[in-house]
Design a protein around this nucleic acid. Structure first.
Lengths: 150, 150
DNA sequence: CGACTGTTGCGACTGATTCGCAATTAGGGG
DNA sequence: CCCCTAATTGCGAATCAGTCGCAACAGTCG
């Protein structure tokens, strides 16, 4: 079950020691349906392996971030100061957080890739991590609001 | 001295009650030469008015954020989990944080404004706040690194 | 199957931010 | 100009995410 996890194989390929805890955490992150924060990641991972400690979660997150395999998000702090994590994908995408309903929209566009290029070239800056987040009102909530004003 | 502060006049115009503490905090933010976190803001503001409490700093930051006059930054958490603040400007700009030297580069480009437009239109999303931050290696540090490898 | 080294659990700790409540104060109406 | 009231503040305790030191444990390589 953990064996066919792409992220796991990638970590292995980098010569990182694979412990039971790391396997469970990586599988959990990879199969997550939503953006997980450290606490939810711990909770979910414990369903696979109850012997996981909070400190290990933070240490593993740190490891995966350093390996460039995990991205950290704030999601505009809609729910407090914690961070959320997601597996890094081929193409960077951005996150839109709705202040009204709390929903998160993901969006990718070539314009973002081009902007990245421009940033890197014009500032002679080697980008390792990039994060674009916006907060505002999604279309459904905007309609809702308008309706209530009538 | 506080009177000629543009931000202060703006806040006043919105019908917000102006206390001595808020005047001092707003003046401090406006005249800051670097990105301030809550603790440094408190420290600096106390030079103007020693009767300022930590809680008031956080409450004022919250207020100014809600008024859309202050933007919150992470600066890639180069120095821990705290947040940094800056007065919102006409044109949005992005922040590049160098993991090697800790330097921050600010950069604005029409491409960013256009990307914002595209995001808003394609997702039918009303953007209220937007934040683009990148982490990596600045040109000076890249040169330094290369030199040391030779 | 050891040994060596990296990893983990634990529990205490830190540092940023928030909260409840009583005391204070800005600023409009008289 | 003063008073009143609602908004704001100070205080100190509480919360909450994340970190640390250290002893016990466990992959991996030979």
């Amino acid at each position: 079950m953990f064996q066919r996890c792409a992220l796991l194989r990638e970590v292995e390929a980098k010569g990182v020691r694979l412990t039971a805890q790391r396997r469970a955490l990586i599988a959990t992150i990879q199969e997550a349906k939503t953006h997980l924060d450290a606490a939810s990641l711990l909770e979910l991972a414990r369903e696979r392996d109850p012997n996981i400690n909070r400190a290990t979660v933070y240490r593993t997150i740190e490891l995966l971030k350093k390996l460039g395999m995990l991205d950290e998000l704030d999601l505009m702090h809609l729910n407090g100061e914690k961070h959320y994590y997601e597996v890094r994908t081929q193409q960077d995408h951005l996150h839109l957080a709705c202040f009204a309903c709390g929903g998160i929209i993901e969006f990718a566009t070539p314009a973002f890739e081009m902007l990245k290029q421009e940033i890197a070239v014009k500032n002679d800056f080697e980008i390792q991590v990039i994060r674009l987040e916006a907060g505002g009102i999604c279309s459904a909530c905007a309609r809702e609001k308008k309706k209530n004003l009538q």
